[in-house]
Design a protein around this nucleic acid. Sequence first.
DNA 1: CATACTCTGGAACGGATGTTCTATAATACA
DNA 2: TGTATTATAGAACATCCGTTCCAGAGTATG
Lengths: 193, 193
Amino acid sequence: MPRPRAFDEESVLDNAMNIFWRKGFETTSVQDLVEETGLNRASMYSSFGDKKALFLRVLEHYSAKISTKRFEKLRETADGREAIVATFKDTTLQCCNDGRFKGCLMVNSGMELAPHDPDIAAISHRAFRRVEDMFANALRRGVDAGTISGDKNIRALARFLAASFQGVQLMARRGSDPETLQDYTETILAALD
Amino acid sequence: MPRPRAFDEESVLDNAMNIFWRKGFETTSVQDLVEETGLNRASMYSSFGDKKALFLRVLEHYSAKISTKRFEKLRETADGREAIVATFKDTTLQCCNDGRFKGCLMVNSGMELAPHDPDIAAISHRAFRRVEDMFANALRRGVDAGTISGDKNIRALARFLAASFQGVQLMARRGSDPETLQDYTETILAALD
DNA sequence: CATACTCTGGAACGGATGTTCTATAATACA
DNA sequence: TGTATTATAGAACATCCGTTCCAGAGTATG
């Protein structure tokens, strides 16, 4: 019976994600969202709730679409060491070529909101933990394959890699020059030796 | 002739710094600043210009007061290796005990504003470079003292340390748990071996 | 074709934003 | 002591914020 929606939820989330990613939560106005998504104010509120609810949906969307893809090789490359190296190199290269200083939406949001917003703090914490676990798995695969020394503290090294991965994206958002980023990444990866 | 000021500029900057540090630039309102500093609106505008001008003064103040102190040991401890280790351990401990997730004002501001504000991007970039240079100096002292191996790439290692130092403060602001932070710091410092 | 229902466009809401203005208070020098 | 000069207090400004409301558009079913 009802009038069908004139918008595609996926593409609305894509567009909303891009503004939030570029500008951050507070600086992005509902007006910005309306203009960028093409969606009407009323439709936005009836379909997604308020601004924060939309933002939470965007974070899920980011995890599912961007983050999942960014860690694809980390999860799937058979040799753990190769998986880790490729993940860092790909992201570093991507950050350099981006040129728009977006960094990582999850990192940005954690920095901006976690101190004041327990919901975001929890999401951000879980996201970090997921990444940490992915690195830990890759490290174990590396140890099994013999490309990573067996006497490493896997958990500590995984935490280091996860934190350093965030560090790379912090540097990218701040607009770091490529040489600095490359020096940084190479030294991070030296921890695998 | 004129009526003397009823406020102390130093303490106004201290208070303003603390709000900006906690809340970030955009989220801090002029009302917040008026309440926290005790300074009148008109006095604020006549003495410091607008909100952004005050923020720039606060960043200088932060560099001179907080940042300088934070890197005191890094600059002054004779043995470079000891200087670096102490700097990381002190800051990590301080971050854990803070409990208010403030992180580093310079890092926070760079993340929030650098992509959209060239002034902040430049300030943030210079600040990073200064830290990088301090680490490089410490590394050279360590090499001279024989506590750091001579075949290291000093510049790359300094960049790694400076970036990782930011990483620690990123983690702190996000509210990372102490064990993760400690694992992270210890693995960073292993790069000195 | 009529009805029921949801979506859409845009105006409207109260409140908060950064900034400026005006009137008054307070001092140092003539 | 009177005057010049600046600081202060607080009202006032236009603008933007997130959110809500209402009138009308559009379609699947009866």
